[in-house]
Structure formats: structure tokens, C-alpha cells
Amino acid sequence: MSKRQPKWAAWGDQQSAQQHYLIEPRYLAGGGDLRHVTEYLRASGWTDNTPRSSAALVFDSPDKTVRVAYQPPGGWQVHGAAHGHQAAWQVTLSPQTPVEIVAGLTDPLAKDRSAHAPNVWGPLVMNEWVTNAGQDFTAVSPNRDAFVQYVGVGADQHWWMGARNEHGAVWNLQATPTTPFHLLQGLTEALASPEPVMRPRGHVPPSNRIRVTSVSVLPEQLRAWQQARITAARTATWARNSVRVARPRAKTRHHAHQ
């Protein structure tokens, strides 16, 4: 199958129910399928610039100002170019960052920004994370297995997020202080969400810090859930582009010669 073609159709070819597992907390669920991120971007009009014969993934925004890349074994890198009043920014995420949390960052890149002022800490406080406004502002999950920190002292200012289980660090994320706040809020919303995430058989992390619920899923159900996400992206992109096309241009005033 060409990498330029939609890839959702390759999932779940067998017709019998397949064993999957709902895992919580989601930040300890393991990496997941990269297509959760990339197919949403593709459906939102992003360009797949992945080099041929490469294990890497590279997607560029329609205006060419943002690049989302995955390079094994290094993980995710998201770069934003400077434009207008926005300085250049960068976020790096290790490979075991759950794709649902990565999507908390990348999905908003494909959407119009909300008119409401972003609040990075709001989703954490709402979900009872413990905050500490010491030298560095920190929020820790109720079970103390995940954290968000802003290191704001000295020249090395940055955002730092991550999770760990009984075996040690599972994943981490670092973002420049210039990263747009609405993207950081998307990350904290995805990180703190109490909703479990689903993983197939063989992809459940070996940890006693997670809660696992076994579910049987028909391939057609899995395809329907995946297609609903793609359809939402296409619909939003179509609506956004339609508004831009329909928006009238400012009329040029012609001044009479005196």
C-alpha cells in the first residue's frame, strides 16, 4: 500500500472480534499507533513529505510554518517557524509518549484557534492534580506518576512533562518557552483526561500502576471509530476553507483626480 493512500482501511481485516484493552491512566498506556496522529493531519490538508524508503514520518502544515516529524528511535519533533508576533518554537516528545497525548498538541495545529485565552494549568487543576508554585511551577498527578513543570529560572527556560511507572521514566516532553499556550493547553487536557485509551493485544505495558479492562472489538467497529476522527478533521477543514473562500475582499477605493 502506498504511503500516500489512506491507511485506515488496512486495520482489522479479520471479521471476528479482536481482543483489545482499555488502559488508565492514559499517560502510562504506551506509545500506540502513530496513525492516530498522522492520519488526522493528512485529513486536515497537511502534506506528507516523508522521504521514500525511510522509517521516519514528516508532515508539513498547508502554510509551511509547522512541521511534525517522527524519527525512530528518537521520537516526535514538532517545529514552528517564526511568523508575525509568534517566535519560533519546538516541542520534542520521546517515542513512548501516548499518541493520544501527542494528538493533544498536533490536533490544535490543524484547527482554528479559540477566541478564549488559553489556560495551561486549568485542565490539571480541574482533574485534581497537585500544584506547587515554588521556584519552578509544577503540577503532579494524583497518583504522582505524571507531572508538568515550567522551569523559569535562568537562561534555560522550558516546559517539561512526563510520566513514570515502577520501572522508571516512561516518556518525557520538552517544549520551548515560546510554544503557543493553546498548544500547551491541548497537551495538558490530553494528559489529565480521565478517559482510558485502547491498545490491542500485545501492546499492554508491563506495569502494576495501570488499570486494564478487556474488551472485544469487531473490526468494523474499530474502522468506524477511526473513520469518525478522520471525518471530523475533513469536515472542519472543509468548513474552514469555505469560510476563507467566501470571505469578501476589501474593496479598493478609487480617488478622483483633483
Rank of each mutant, 00 (worst) to 15 (best):
K3L: 08
Y40P: 03
I230P: 04
R201T: 10
T235R: 12
W8A: 14
A169F: 07
W129Y: 13
Q96C: 09
P51F: 09
T138E: 14
A17M: 06
R52V: 14
W171Y: 03
N208P: 09
S44T: 00
Q227D: 08
M198F: 09
R67I: 09
S53M: 15
T176V: 02
H79P: 00
H167T: 13
W8P: 10
R229V: 13
A69W: 00
L124K: 11
L57W: 07
G168Y: 02
S44W: 00
V66C: 01
E195Y: 08
F137C: 05
F147N: 07
S193R: 13
V68T: 00
V140L: 14
H158I: 09
S2T: 06
P25I: 12
L22F: 05
V217K: 05
A139D: 03
E195A: 10
I101V: 11
H254N: 07
E39V: 01
K3W: 06
A236L: 05
F137V: 10
P51K: 07
D107E: 06
G186F: 04
H182I: 07
W8S: 15
Q90V: 06
G168C: 04
M198Q: 13
Q135E: 12
A29F: 11
P180G: 06
I210T: 05
Y27T: 11
A29R: 12
L22T: 04
G162Y: 03
E100G: 02
H167C: 09
P51V: 08
S2N: 12
T179I: 12
G80V: 05
A163Q: 14
G134E: 14
K111C: 03
T106A: 00
G30H: 01
Q19P: 06
L124E: 04
Q157H: 03
Q19I: 09
A56V: 06
